[in-house]
Design a protein around this nucleic acid. Sequence first.
DNA 1: TGTGGCGAAATTGCATGCAATCCTTTATAC
DNA 2: GTATAAAGGATTGCATGCAATTTCGCCACA
Lengths: 237, 237
Amino acid sequence: MKAADKAKHRTDMISSALRSAILERVLMPGMKLPEDSLGERFGVSRTLIRQSLERLAAEGLVELRRNKGAMVARPSLEEARDLFELRTQIEDLVISRVVKNMSPEILGELEAHLAKEVEAEHASEPISIRLATEFHILLARLAGSPVLLRYVEEIGYRCGLTLSLYARPHSTDCGIQEHRQIIDALAKGDEGTARKLMRHHLTAVADRALFRTEEGGPLLYLDALEPYAKKVRDGGA
Amino acid sequence: MKAADKAKHRTDMISSALRSAILERVLMPGMKLPEDSLGERFGVSRTLIRQSLERLAAEGLVELRRNKGAMVARPSLEEARDLFELRTQIEDLVISRVVKNMSPEILGELEAHLAKEVEAEHASEPISIRLATEFHILLARLAGSPVLLRYVEEIGYRCGLTLSLYARPHSTDCGIQEHRQIIDALAKGDEGTARKLMRHHLTAVADRALFRTEEGGPLLYLDALEPYAKKVRDGGA
DNA sequence: TGTGGCGAAATTGCATGCAATCCTTTATAC
DNA sequence: GTATAAAGGATTGCATGCAATTTCGCCACA
């Protein structure tokens, strides 16, 4: 029963579900996240919901105000800029590590992911947003540093959240074309080019995003969450 | 009552207390951290202890094994190397931001901290370890990026923990002399030198640390924790 | 003496309950 | 009609209880 040790448990599943919902813009910034409603949805008690919310708050996806409950975070423009700036610098570190680790298997994983992106390109929007974020995360995993991976994940998620606040609804967010080029540069071991491309790629995303100042939005809590909750209740990942 | 919104609450206080205890080597790597014992010590229920442990686990200071409770983390040598490598790269980012933000106030804060370090130099060892870590954290705060600050904190803490596993007991860990030089370089706006010094400083710490392979140690749980717990019970920071 | 298994004690996983806090609505005064 | 205040409802903060799991000591047995 050693393997069961690693079995994701309910808190993990709930956190993941909520995170996905946020990144796929089912839960929009500012929406309230009451413990009992969520608990009811997910078929667990407030205890586990609380844990999950706390975890997401640590990642910066959820704001947690004392005695006032949780809501999907609404990062300020300033925070967003900070985030995107840091992101380019952190992902620089990723690039140089991936170049060092480059191998056929790694290239294979990258290609496989890109294929998924291409396939999803014409599907529903939220999925392609998630895949785009996951491209960066995959790169970070291939960099071989667990801590770095965690940071890229976190920053990536938060940038994704930021995009749902500030980006135009139909911007592509992450050009598949650009991912393609980055992979090619990495394949050639051309760190300089890869780095430049990544930088350009990220600033492009940021530039497209960080200008709308549109305020507010619907603050009511949706039950479009149902599909996410169902997965958890059924024990899926 | 707006200010009270920010009032640190019990979970924060407990986390801080435990973190300090770990960094000051009162809780050594591998020690068990049972919820009820801690709860009793700190005068709170297991709920809050649990939250705190979870938070520390997210920071990497505590290992949390399902159904088997929490213990102070025992980072492997490999993790430690990864950590120290990342640290130099992350603190590079800090340096260049601090140089950009440099001002008399900032210089003042740095000097003030150094003064504390000098003062504590001849006091008990644990305190000077903590102060040394906090030097890096202060720098990160002055870099002006909240996210970067969080990462530096986390990495700093984890490196501190690592040192208590692998470093020789009486190594100075962080040379005050070196902090002095870094401040001077920053004051002159000499980013290159500051960077080089910091890099050298960090690799020196890592080199001093990452060789002992000594195994084990006392696994029993101490109640040297009492002073830390008392602070929390009395509502102090 | 060493090994395997069984049962009790300890410890965590999770749900629930109660008190404290905050938010909203209604009532009342000006 | 506006503003203020108080009551009621909703929601979180925290403690406690019970079931499930693990750990450890004990004894049988080779």
